[in-house]
């Protein structure tokens, strides 16, 4: 088996595709944690987003006929973002208003994301594991052979954008203040609760977007458990990226590369596929162990705020 240019090009594009959902989710997680709320529910929210996108597109196709509807995948994306935001809102209400342990409340949502899709799928399709395939997937932008989903471009554009929002706008300053020292921020007249709600809901919207990318960009249906730990990997990437957009870009690229390598090696005789699949997870553990020393989380993260 020789590794020729085609292999490396395929690996490069595969890396970009694999990075996209991680990057979107990790940026979301960054907004949430910068505001002081840990959101490990992102894993489940990706699933809810993917389910929404796949089911909405399929249902519309079911009523209007399959014929190409260029607007339809975007409707799927929007509804996935909406549902992602709503699910995140549940986490926000329980952990901000009712001061629940943020990890437990988020775990509840992850558990919900294991069970609820099956109920919805059984309701619509009579099976518990996957939705019907859709025709109207997200388009591919770019020249023949090198085309990528628009969400890929969007994800990478979001990096400078969220850097600007976080570090150059009053909103970003407030968000960071609330995550670092909510008491001080409150004294200055910043509404701590509102900023936290915004941070968490924003993370849900972005994770929903990542889910939509998986369901109607990467594949053409919802498959049970399709997020496969991406939400958790994104959080590890966010920690590794030191809660900073640029750091997150590089760390998600690393994880994306690990996943892409795993995919490219499948079916070859270099390494067995079952072991290669574990590659990104091993990298996550190593990264968390090896490089944690110097990264510092927002000071008030995980702590409910009480006026």
């Amino acid at each position: 088996m020789n590794l020729d240019a085609a292999f490396w090009i395929a690996l490069f594009f595969s890396t970009l595709r694999q990075t996209t959902p991680l990057l979107l989710t990790a940026l979301g997680g960054m907004f949430s944690e910068r505001s002081g709320v840990v959101n490990i529910a992102l894993e489940g929210i990706i699933l809810f987003g993917a389910l929404t996108a796949a089911v909405v597109v399929e249902r519309v196709e079911h009523t209007l006929g399959p014929g190409p509807h260029p607007w339809l995948p975007w409707l799927g994306v929007l509804s996935a973002m909406l549902v992602g935001g709503l699910v995140a809102l549940v986490h926000a209400v329980v952990s901000i208003k009712y001061r629940a342990d943020q990890i437990i409340s988020a775990t509840a949502i992850n558990l919900l994301a294991l069970g609820a899709p099956s109920l919805v799928l059984t309701y619509f399709y009579g099976n518990a594991t996957n939705s019907k395939e859709v025709v109207n997937r997200l388009p591919l932008w770019g020249s023949e052979g090198f085309a990528l989903s628009p969400l890929v471009y969007l994800a990478f554009l979001l990096v400078p954008l969220s850097w600007w929002v976080l570090f150059k706008t009053p909103f970003g300053l407030r968000l960071r203040a609330v995550g670092e020292h909510p008491e001080a921020a409150d004294t200055l007249g910043i509404n701590v609760y509102r900023m936290r709600y915004i941070g968490v809901v924003l993370s849900g919207v972005l994770a929903g977007l990542a889910g939509a990318y998986l369901a109607i960009g990467f594949l053409n249906q919802f498959v049970r458990g399709m997020s496969a730990g991406m939400g958790f990997i994104s959080l590890a990437a966010m920690i590794f990226g030191k809660w900073h957009p640029l750091g997150i870009l590089f760390s998600t690229l690393l994880f994306g590369f690990a996943s892409a390598l795993a995919i490219q090696l499948q079916g070859t005789e270099i390494l067995p596929a079952v072991l290669v699949q574990a590659f990104p997870y091993v990298v996550t553990v190593l990264v968390l162990a090896g490089f944690m020393g110097k990264s510092r989380p927002p000071a008030a993260v995980g702590r409910p705020y009480e006026k």
């Binding site: 549940v90 329980v94 952990s95 009712y98 629940a100 342990d101 437990i104 409340s105 775990t107 509840a108 949502i109 558990l111 919900l112 294991l114 069970g115 609820a116 099956s118 109920l119 059984t122 518990a128």
Partner: peptide, 20 residues
């Protein structure tokens, strides 16, 4: 009705207990 109804109930219980 899918058996996952029980999984959903479990998840809801966790969520509600978390919220006291």
């Amino acid at each position: 009705i899918s058996r996952e109804l029980v999984a959903v109930l479990q998840a809801l219980i966790v969520l509600f207990i978390a919220a006291g």
